[in-house]
Every structure is written in C-alpha cells, then in structure tokens.
Design a protein around this nucleic acid. Structure first.
Lengths: 189, 189
DNA sequence: CCGTCGAGTGATTGACCAGTCACTCACAAT
DNA sequence: ATTGTGAGTGACTGGTCAATCACTCGACGG
C-alpha cells in the first residue's frame, strides 16, 4: 500500500490513480488486449506519462495485481474479525462472504482470472504466487482451520471465478445450477 | 469429433492438423498473444491458408476449444468406465484421475485457462459454456453423484488448473503445499 | 492436349501499439 | 527576474498482426 494520507507528492497521487484505472481496464480486457492508452484515458493523462510513472506495461499490471490482492487480504481479514472466535468452519464461511462482497463489481475477480492467463510472464506469475500465498496463509492463520479446509476454501473461490466469468446462474441450464448452487453470485443480494 | 478414418478430403485432413497446431499454440500464448502465423508455422502451411480453412481467428480458437472439451469428456467417460459400478464418490475419483492423466502435458489445461480469460468474446464464452455443460452433465450422469459432489469435483478441477498454471508444489512454500495436497501434479507420476 | 478445380502461397494493406524523446509549462527558491 | 525542477504532452518509430487478393501449381476428367 502506498502511504495514503502521508504527505504525498503529486506524482505519487497520480501513480495511485493510474493503478486504479489499470485495475478497471485490465479487468475488462486482460493483459494483452488492453493498451496503455486505455488506462491513460481513464486516468485522464497522456499515454506517454504512464511510462514515466511505471517502467513498462508489465510493471503497471503487476502494480494493479498487488493492489488487488491487498484488497482481497483486507476483506478476508475483516470477514474473519466479524466472525469473532467461532469455529474454523464458520470463520472461513464469513471470510467467503466478505470475499463475495468485495468482488461484487467483478473488477478484482476478472483481474485475477486474466492474471492467471498471463502467468507465462514471470513477473506476473510471481505477483500471483505472492498474492495467493498471502491469501492462503491469512485464511489458515485467521481461521485456524486444517489444511484440507483451507484448500477447499480456495478451490471454491476458483469455482466462483469461473461462474462469474461465464455469467452462470440457474437459468443458464440445470448443469449451471449444479455449479452455482450456494455460491453467492456477484452483483446479486 | 470430425469423422477420422472416414474418407477424408485433403483439406479436411489439413483442418484437423491445424486444430491440433492451434491447441498447442493457443495453449502456449493464449488467444490475444498468439498470432495465426504461429499456428500456421506449426502446421507447416502459410498463414493465408489458415484463413481459407477457418473464417477468422475466433473460429479457429473455438474449434480448438471444442476439440479440447471433446477430449476431456472422452477421458472422463473412460475413467467412469474403469470404475465400473462403484459408489459415486469412487467413480468421481476415477474420473479425476483420468482427467489428471489427460492434462499431463498441460496443453488442454492451459487452453481452458486462456479461454476463460478470453470469454469476453461471445463466441468463446459460448464454447466454454458448451464444454463445461457437457463435462458437468457427464460427471453427474456417469457417477450418479449428488449435485454437491459434482460441484466439488469441478471446483477441485479449477484448483488443479491454478496449481499447474503457477507450477506450485510443496517446495514453493508451505502455503503451496496446502493448496496442492493430494492433487496429482501434471507431469509427475 | 486442354480446361478446370481445389490446394496452397506471396505480397500487401490498414490498423494498432509499446516505448522514446524532445519539448512546454507552471511554480518555487534564490 | 532568473534559474532549476518536476509534471505532463505531441509526435514519432519500429514492429506486429489480422485479413485479403491475385496468383501459381498440380491433378484429373474429357
């Protein structure tokens, strides 16, 4: 997290704004089909200036991804806090609910999907591993659950990504209802 | 499945070869960063001829994806057959094993990952939904398992994709071992 | 021997995009 | 007033890629 609230030079503020724009744009188009100019336009600056704030396209994507996992970790942490000191299963359930709330707008979710697909770029793969490590360790530490429960937690998170990406719900067909059952659908209460 | 073995004009044989090449190349680079010329080179034809065999890049990708899900369905079907009429849980377990064997070379796995990321193209999203419907219905019908078990089956399949994409194994760190526990790692016995 | 039909290609076009560079402009300190 | 500094941009470059088209070549029937 860049030190928001601390004295903040204009260019650091810009950098943060560009990261926000990058999350939105990369979530829409993915890494390879999102031009820097789209991010620049959303942040209301010129494409050239993006390259003064970040050394290249990859590092901008990585910055967006780092921020994404930061937000996810933050949400999970709050979910765990909300559950208090219930049993592990219940704490994981609350964390899942907090995650569902966070990704309701789909940006953070799609960014993760696109990142997985772009993981042949080593810097991106590293960022995903870093983020996933943080999330996994946080889920395990805060819930006190066994490894198998944490594994299931992440697996259903991945399933949730698939469901959201494909816009599945019961009206898509019986098979879709099987996959989506009990998964809080992003964008719906 | 294209009628392999039936009398087959030269151009149909080419089309099949191009689909094979497309699976390999799209699995490497994903949809947006794989040029048609790469597929053409692997199939030993000119890029121009690819456009005579397929109306455009999207339909080539969709053809590759359709074939991918065909192979997956075939593998699951064999896994189910191997299990005989054991209990549903055991049949699903065998199907999972058959899937792990199939995707040992990662091409079919990575193609699915890339397809999910490219699902903002409607034709691709349709193809993924079609394939996933086939797989889900097959798993349910052949195993006789309840919806919840089938859902878990697919969720762990997605987790398996994540693990393979990021090359996770126990030596990546403790958190990776949590996620990868009991998952047959592609490319290892 | 000729025509034609399908396989296959070379060359090109038009668009797009990552990254660079020289430049302007506003402002602050001396 | 002058100078220095950092924010911000316009214009350009080199390269890539999807798609098109006119073309060649060989096989095969008459």
């Amino acid at each position: 997290m860049t030190k928001r609230g601390a004295t903040l030079s204009t260019s650091d503020a810009r950098r943060d704004a560009v990261v926000d724009a990058a999350i939105a744009e990369f979530a829409r188009g993915g890494y390879h089909s999102t031009p820097i100019s789209a991010v620049a336009a959303r942040a209301d600056i010129s494409p050239a200036y993006v390259f003064k704030l970040f050394p290249g396209k990859v590092s901008l994507f990585v910055a967006a991804l780092d921020r994404c996992y930061e937000l996810v970790a933050h949400a999970l942490s709050h979910g765990a806090a909300r559950a208090g000191d219930a049993d592990p299963e219940k704490i994981l359930y609350e964390m899942g609910g907090a995650y569902a709330d966070l990704i309701a707008d789909r940006n953070l979710l799609m960014l993760q999907v696109h990142a997985q697909s772009a993981a042949d770029t080593p810097e991106i793969a590293d960022a995903v591993r870093r983020g996933l490590a943080k999330v996994t360790e946080l889920a395990q530490a805060r819930s006190g659950a066994e490894a198998g429960q944490v594994q299931r937690f992440v697996a259903y998170g991945q399933l949730c990504h698939l469901i959201a990406t494909l816009d599945l719900d019961e009206h898509t067909g019986g098979w879709a209802a099987v996959l989506a059952a009990g998964i809080r659908h992003p964008g719906k209460p």
